[in-house]
């Protein structure tokens, strides 16, 4: 059997007495889009935080491309090739869009302090080319030299996606990409997410509440509730699952 891109085994974490994740298992194939849904506080973002090393899980394993990454610090996880976006945008506000994207190239940058001090910028040019490709892809030309705080919300969302893509990740974790966008922007982002899979050959783990969009995008879907997996399967199956319905709508 081929090695899965990502496999998560009985991942659990508690904060004080609150069980945020109570043993989650799932796998993600190469170039698969897997959506995670669930009511507020069901542990979706905690799951992403455990995978990216912001939290270190109490028990369980996270295996990425055949190697265990549980407990590694976030920067080491990023160097392995996992990129993420945040639910509440976390950009470098006082920098330009261009610099934010260049920071996404940080892991790919061949760093030489002497070149930095002596202003030898060969490496910079190489990465600038790649960033310009991304600016093309995300249609950010008009904002290239603008400070991120001055950009509209939708653009900021795109920049964050771009910064993650600049890392050329093997796995992309996207936390609520459609939150707060207009319907046009939602359509565009949805289109881009499918485009990303084809163009950059990444696996995508997607957290989202907009079930209509998610069921069009996702190959498979997982539903969480109170830190436990309550359903897994194709979007249609999961949405018809009685456990999921009762988690969202309550019981009669």
């Amino acid at each position: 059997m081929a090695v899965k891109l990502l496999s998560v085994n009985s991942l659990a974490i508690s904060f004080g007495g609150i069980r945020a994740l109570g043993g989650i298992d799932f796998e993600l194939e190469d170039q698969e889009i897997l959506a995670i849904i669930g009511p507020n506080g069901s542990g979706k973002t905690t799951l992403i935080n455990c995978i990216t090393g912001i939290y270190s899980p109490d028990r369980g394993q996270v295996i990425f491309e055949g190697e265990s990454i549980a407990g590694l610090s976030p920067d080491l996880v990023a160097q392995r090739g996992i990129a993420r976006t945040f639910q509440n945008i976390r950009l470098f506000n006082n920098m330009t869009v261009l610099d934010n994207l260049m920071l996404g190239r940080h892991v790919k940058f061949r760093k030489n302090p002497f070149h930095a001090v002596l202003r030898i910028r060969k490496e910079e040019l190489v990465h600038r080319e790649r960033v310009e490709e991304l600016i093309d892809f995300l249609d950010l030309h008009a904002y290239r030299k603008m400070r991120v705080v001055d950009c509209p919300y939708g653009v900021q969302k795109s920049v964050e996606l771009g910064r993650a893509l600049a890392m050329e990740p093997g796995l992309l974790l996207i936390d609520e990409p459609f939150a707060g966008l207009t319907s046009e922007e939602k359509e565009e982002t949805a289109y881009r997410i499918t485009e990303i899979r084809g163009k950059y050959k990444t696996g995508i783990l997607l957290i989202e509440h907009d079930l209509r969009l998610v069921s069009k995008l996702a190959d498979r879907m997982i539903a969480l509730n109170y830190g436990l997996k309550i359903a897994e399967g194709s979007p249609q199956e999961v949405q018809r699952n009685p456990g999921v319905i009762s988690a969202y709508l309550g019981n009669e």
Binding site: T52, I54, S73, P74, D75, A78, Q79, A83, R84, F86, R90, L91, F92, N93, N94, M95, D99, M102, L103, G104, H106, V107, F109, K111, P113, H115, A116, V117, L118, R119, R121, E123, E124, R163, A164, M167
Partner: peptide, 28 residues
């Protein structure tokens, strides 16, 4: 030269958002 290089960018990233800086691979 330092502030316009990758080092300077990493510094500013830490100032503006240390969690995001770590998530894109900057060793804090």
């Amino acid at each position: 030269n330092i502030i316009s290089s990758y080092i300077g960018r990493a510094f500013i990233a830490i100032r503006d958002n240390d969690i995001a800086a770590e998530a894109i691979g900057v060793n804090l």
